[in-house]
Amino acid sequence: MSTAKRNRIRYTIVFAVLIAMVFVLLVLNINTGNVNISPGRILQILFTGQGEQNELNIIFKIRLPRLIMAGMLGGALALAGFLLQTFFANPIAGPFVLGISSGAKMVVALVMIYFLDKVGKVSSFALVLAAFVGAMMSTLFILLISHFLPNMSGLLVAGIMIGYICSAVTEFLITFAEDADIVNLHGWSQGSFSGMDFGDVASAGIIVGIAFLLTFFLSKPIGAFQMGENYARSMGVNVKSFRICLILLSSLLAACVTAYAGPISFVGIAVPFLMKRCLNTAKPIVVIPAAFLGGAVFCMLSDLIARTAFAPTELNISTVTSLFGAPIVIYMLIQRKAKNAQ
């Protein structure tokens, strides 16, 4: 049983490192920006809630909600990616490449423009709902195509095309929408964690929290599904309803991220891959929490860089995630190719 022991040690180390990174990034993220606040002071303010009004505002109104959102939504993206990879039995599936994020973005933009025009305000739940509808639309379309093109490249091309179409429609809408909030909308449609408040944190937290728990409790059938649909069925998985669960959950997670922060690329593919390598297993029961933490770390770090690298100019979050994520995905593809050639 020494292998089991070795695995357990490995898992413990990976989780310890991830949690430590979350804390380091927490402090680092609050610490850096136009106004620097020292780590000691941060801890003091966080734990006592006392401090100068200016500092309190920066921490509680701007940096902390943004930070928590980056972590939570990053985790959600990684989970959505992992679920889609399970569904399509394809490591390169993810909400962004399959056009699911773009579909969500399109419907959100539609709803936003309509509501801002008529009502002047949109609730965040309405936006999540709109994003969910958009995500489901893209997903169903992908499912339809994957029926005719059941291979990896067919799926990808279809997803990328859907992504382009949806983005084109969104750009069109934004170009012709006449509102002062367009600047805001434009920033959002490129992906950004800026402008989050604690209300967003609470509503996103509920959705992501529930989706995470449901995903975690699916880890047993996900494990069986990794051996292929037919083996899963023979072991007692109700494949049909399981697939519906996967699609609903991954769409919900991707929709939630898109509604709050816009489309964010590569997290969904790169993070689950990295976590599986680090853990040296694909067992869902460890990969799911690890991917969530990994996604959180990845996005918190990316947001830190987006915020500070060219301050005061802020980068799109996808600019940073692509810069780190794309090379990981390329490495993954090459490594897969080499393995298959063995």
Binding site: Q226, M227, G228, Y231, S234, A282
Partner: peptide, 14 residues
């Protein structure tokens, strides 16, 4: 009932 199928599986990291 248990099965052994013809399809070749490539489970990841198992």
């Amino acid at each position: 009932m248990a099965v052994v199928l013809t399809e070749r599986i490539r489970p990841e990291l198992m």
